[in-house]
Simulated assay, not measured.
Amino acid sequence: MRWSAVVACSALFLSSAVNGQDSAKSPDGGYSVSVVPNGEGDENGSGAQAIVLYGARGGVQRRLLVSRWNGDYSRNLAGLSRPLFSLDGGYVYFSSTDASPNSAYVHRFDLKRNAIKAVCPGLALRVMRTGPYRGYLIVQTHRYWDRPEGGSYNPVFLTHPSGRKIMMVPGSDNDEGELAVDPWLAKMNWRAW
């Protein structure tokens, strides 16, 4: 499958374009990280994107990784999106996806060790900034109903940084589960971004 077809198929599930520039600032404001185009790449997206760390003044600090496709979706590092810094700024979480929305996966890049770890299936939406779950992730997944009529939905889960799901965000068990996140955070008086 051509890379453009992968992006088109994934766009329904991703709320931001896979091939667009996704960015995040570090908690201390000293750095930003972006998913940027890196060239044409191959038919699976290998080489098409990079995750780059910038200094506060805009200078490139270092290229963290260049996209590379793998048939095992927990090891796939193509279709990159949604970089997020951990609370301490030591890690960058990001998502990868293949042509199918249920192949999305959250990964963590350790900035000190230059190591990547697969965290859990889904798309990283935010990091909890306040409340008892500070530092936990808000992750959207793609699931299929176990009902006779079938169908799918996109629930959102409060997720430990290790990948263990803590709870489903109330009201997120539908096609647009991410819309339940802000009302839930407001009700709990918690913040996440």
Rank of each mutant, 00 (worst) to 15 (best):
R68A: 15
R68D: 14
R68M: 13
R68Y: 13
W69R: 12
W69I: 01
N70P: 00
N70W: 04
N70Y: 07
G71P: 00
G71Y: 05
G71L: 09
G71Q: 14
D72L: 11
D72A: 14
S74A: 09
S74K: 08
R75A: 12
R75F: 06
R75G: 03
R75M: 14
N76D: 15
N76A: 09
N76S: 14
N76M: 10
N76H: 07
L77N: 07
L77W: 06
L77E: 15
L77V: 13
L77K: 15
A78Y: 06
A78R: 06
A78F: 07
G79F: 12
G79V: 14
L80Q: 08
L80W: 08
L80A: 10
L80T: 07
L80N: 11
S81Y: 08
R82D: 14
P83W: 02
P83Y: 03
P83L: 04
P83N: 05
P83S: 05
L84R: 14
L84S: 01
L84W: 01
F85L: 02
F85V: 01
F85N: 00
L87A: 14
L87Y: 02
L87D: 07
D88S: 11
D88G: 05
G89E: 10
G89K: 12
G90W: 05
Y91M: 04
Y91C: 02
V92F: 00
V92T: 02
V92I: 12
F94L: 11
F94C: 09
S95E: 10
S96M: 08
S96E: 08
S96K: 06
T97V: 15
T97N: 14
D98M: 13
D98V: 03
D98H: 09
A99V: 05
A99L: 11
A99F: 09
P101V: 10
N102H: 07
N102Q: 10
S103R: 13
S103N: 11
A104K: 05
A104W: 04
A104E: 06
Y105Q: 13
Y105W: 15
V106D: 13
V106W: 04
V106F: 05
H107S: 09
H107N: 12
H107I: 10
H107K: 10
R108C: 08
R108A: 14
R108M: 05
F109N: 02
F109K: 03
F109M: 11
D110W: 00
D110S: 03
D110A: 03
D110T: 00
L111Y: 01
L111G: 00
K112I: 01
R113G: 06
R113I: 02
N114S: 14
N114H: 13
N114W: 07
A115K: 13
I116M: 04
K117R: 10
K117V: 04
K117N: 05
K117Q: 09
A118D: 08
A118Q: 08
A118V: 04
A118S: 15
A118T: 05
V119L: 11
V119E: 10
V119H: 05
C120D: 11
C120F: 02
C120G: 01
P121T: 11
P121D: 13
P121H: 12
P121G: 09
P121C: 07
G122A: 05
L123P: 00
L123E: 13
